[in-house]
C-alpha cells in the first residue's frame, strides 16, 4: 500500500564531490511529487537515494535519513535489497531484460525472488500489464521477447515490471524523455491512475509534464558548477506554477534561465 516518505537532512556524495546539500522534504501517500530543476542540480541523485540505488555507483554514499512511514531505510540493520523491493523504480531509458519474454520480464522480480507457482505468476503478469495499460497490446504475444516492442511499449513494460513486485512507492527518473508525445501521454495517464495505489515521485525536465501530472512540485537548483544541489522550494504544483515563493523558481519555470 502507498506509504509516505520523509527525507531529513539528506546529504549525498559521489566520492569527494558533495552532490546534494541538506535536503528535507515530505511526500504524502497517494500523491505524485515532481522534481524539477536544471541539469546537474541533483534531482535524479535525490530520487535514486530514495530506494538506495544511489549507493550502487562506486564511491557514492548518503548521509541523513529517509523515512518510509517512519522507518529509516538507511538504518544500519536494513537490507538495501528489501528497500528496493518496497520502493520500485522506472528509468529514463526503457530497459527490458533482453533475454526474457514479455511475460517473464513482468514477473522477473517475483520469479527471481523465488516465486515458482506458474498460475500465480501468470495472474500477476496480467494484473501488472493491465495496470500499465499494456495488456491489450501484448496479450497475444506474451511469449515474444520484450525487446521487440516499441519504445513507449517497452517503457510501459518496465512500469508493469516495477509494479508487479507490489511496491509501496514508485520512483520515475525522467520516464518519458526517450518517448514520443503519444507514448508520453499514455504514460502520463497511467501515472494518474497509479496514484490510487502508489506514492509516486517523478523527475522530469518537462515543466508542462510536471504541471500536468503532479500534486506537489519540488524545485532543485545549484549555485554554480561544482557546487552541491539544493532543494529551493517544495509546494503544491498549482502554487509553484502560479505564485512561487522564491524568485529562482519563478525564473526557472518562466524560462528565464535553465
Amino acid at each position: 500500500m502507498a506509504k509516505r516518505i520523509d527525507v531529513k537532512d539528506l546529504n549525498l556524495y559521489y566520492g569527494k564531490f558533495h552532490a546534494v546539500d541538506q535536503v528535507s522534504l515530505a511526500v504524502p501517500p497517494h500523491s505524485v511529487t515532481a522534481f524539477i530543476g536544471p541539469s546537474g542540480c541533483g534531482k535524479s541523485t535525490v530520487l535514486r537515494s530514495l530506494n538506495r540505488m544511489h549507493e550502487v555507483i562506486p564511491g557514492a554514499r548518503a548521509e541523513g535519513k529517509v523515512l518510509l512511514d517512519g522507518e529509516d531505510i538507511y538504518a544500519s540493520t536494513v537490507d538495501p535489497v528489501s528497500v528496493r523491493r518496497t520502493i520500485g523504480m522506472v528509468f529514463q531509458r526503457p530497459n527490458p531484460f533482453p533475454t526474457m519474454s514479455i511475460r517473464d520480464n513482468v514477473v522477473a522480480g517475483l520469479r527471481l525472488a523465488g516465486e515458482k507457482n506458474k498460475g500465480k505468476l501468470d495472474e500477476v503478469a496480467e494484473q501488472a500489464l493491465r495496470g500499465a495499460n499494456l495488456w491489450a497490446e501484448v496479450k497475444d504475444r506474451l511469449a515474444k521477447p520484450g525487446g521487440g516492442l516499441s519504445g513507449g511499449q517497452q517503457q510501459r513494460l518496465c512500469i508493469a515490471r516495477a509494479i508487479a513486485v507490489r511496491p509501496d512507492v514508485l520512483l520515475m527518473d525522467e520516464p518519458c524523455s526517450a518517448l514520443d508525445p503519444i507514448s508520453t501521454l499514455a504514460i502520463e495517464d497511467l501515472i494518474g491512475e497509479l496514484k490510487k495505489d502508489y506514492t509516486i515521485v517523478i523527475v522530469t525536465h518537462n515543466m508542462q509534464q510536471a504541471a500536468r501530472v503532479s500534486d506537489q512540485c519540488a524545485f532543485f537548483n545549484l549555485a554554480g558548477v561544482g557546487q552541491p544541489g539544493r532543494l529551493i522550494e517544495l509546494d503544491d504544483t498549482e502554487k509553484i506554477f502560479s505564485n512561487p515563493g522564491q524568485k529562482a523558481t519563478e525564473d526557472y519555470i518562466s524560462g528565464r534561465f535553465g
Partner: peptide, 11 residues
C-alpha cells in the same frame, strides 16, 4: 542499465 533495473526490482 540492466543491472540497475534488476537491483531496482529488489533482486
Amino acid at each position: 542499465e540492466l543491472r540497475e533495473a534488476a537491483y531496482a526490482l529488489g533482486i
